[in-house]
Computed example of a mutant assay.
Amino acid sequence: MAGKKINPILKMVLEFGPIVLFFIGYLKLKDEIFLIGGEEYKGFILVTAAFVPLMMMSTAALWKLTGHLSKMQLATLVLVVLFGGLSVWFNDERFFKMKPTMIYLLFGGLLAVGLMRGESWLKVVMEEVMPMEEAGWMILTRRICGFFLGLAVANEVIWRFFTTDTWVYFKTFGLPVAMFLFFMTQGPLLQKYGLEEDEEVEDPKA
């Protein structure tokens, strides 16, 4: 069921606002140590603790304004709460750094299962906004599946072998830029296999 239309700028603020605030908070508190309940917490953990409710509130606002949340938005929220909560509870930033890996493995793995069944599960969730021939959906699904799995590997390499600063910049800027560039390069595919609105409706006189 399609959601209600909202101002695109407001939508962008709700979707990316928590990430931007996480980045700003990290830059301000990354070198700080806080003593809470007799235990020391790095600034990264406190920023993560603030990011989780921010993400919950922004997702709730999107649902309230649009009346709809995609499966991807819901899955992302669940993983943010789970891995962010684990990082705060165990005072271990590694859990939160693993979160993008889990998100991309989940989405990439689901698409891979669909492909093994000869189906495009991407089509199920995106067909209404991007009508396309079946062959196009299969090609796009294979590409996005590979892309997501590649992002999962990239995140693992960066958080395990590079500094926290590098990972935060990668998460805040690298991942969104990679997504943007990937979908920009799919233009020829969409042009080749895209369907016009009148092509989807069968002519009753035919």
Rank of each mutant, 00 (worst) to 15 (best):
D31L: 11
Y41E: 08
L79F: 09
L122Q: 05
V13E: 02
Q191Y: 01
L10M: 11
L79R: 05
V80G: 02
L21I: 13
I158F: 05
C145T: 15
E196I: 09
K171P: 06
V157F: 13
K28V: 15
V125Y: 09
L190M: 15
T101I: 12
G118V: 00
K205V: 13
M72T: 15
M1N: 12
W63Y: 14
V80H: 04
G187W: 11
A112Y: 15
V88T: 05
L122K: 01
E134R: 13
P100W: 09
W121N: 10
M1T: 08
K28Q: 14
K123H: 03
F107C: 01
W137R: 09
P53A: 06
P8K: 07
T166Y: 06
E196V: 03
V125K: 05
F83A: 07
L151D: 03
E133R: 14
V125W: 11
L140N: 06
Y193Q: 12
A135G: 07
L27F: 03
L105A: 03
F51P: 00
S70Y: 10
G150A: 10
M1W: 09
R117F: 14
G136F: 00
T48L: 05
T172G: 00
Y193V: 09
K4A: 13
K71I: 15
G194R: 08
L54Y: 12
K97M: 15
F83H: 06
I6K: 06
I103A: 12
T166V: 12
F51I: 00
M126I: 09
L82C: 11
L69M: 10
F51G: 00
H68A: 10
S58H: 10
V81I: 15
W63H: 14
L110W: 06
M98A: 11
G136K: 03
I158C: 09
G3I: 05
T101D: 02
V177I: 15
V125C: 04
N155F: 03
E39V: 15
F162M: 13
Y41K: 14
L29R: 00
M126Q: 12
T59W: 01
F170V: 01
L77F: 04
L106V: 06
P8Y: 09
P8W: 11
F95N: 04
I144M: 12
S70P: 05
T141A: 05
L190R: 14
M132F: 00
M55G: 14
Q191V: 10
L35G: 05
A61R: 04
V168F: 09
L46H: 05
A112M: 08
L195Y: 02
L74H: 00
V80R: 01
M132P: 02
G85C: 04
T172K: 03
V13P: 01
R94H: 09
Q191G: 07
D203Y: 06
L190Y: 07
L122G: 08
E39P: 04
P188M: 06
G194T: 08
M98Y: 01
P204Y: 05
E93S: 10
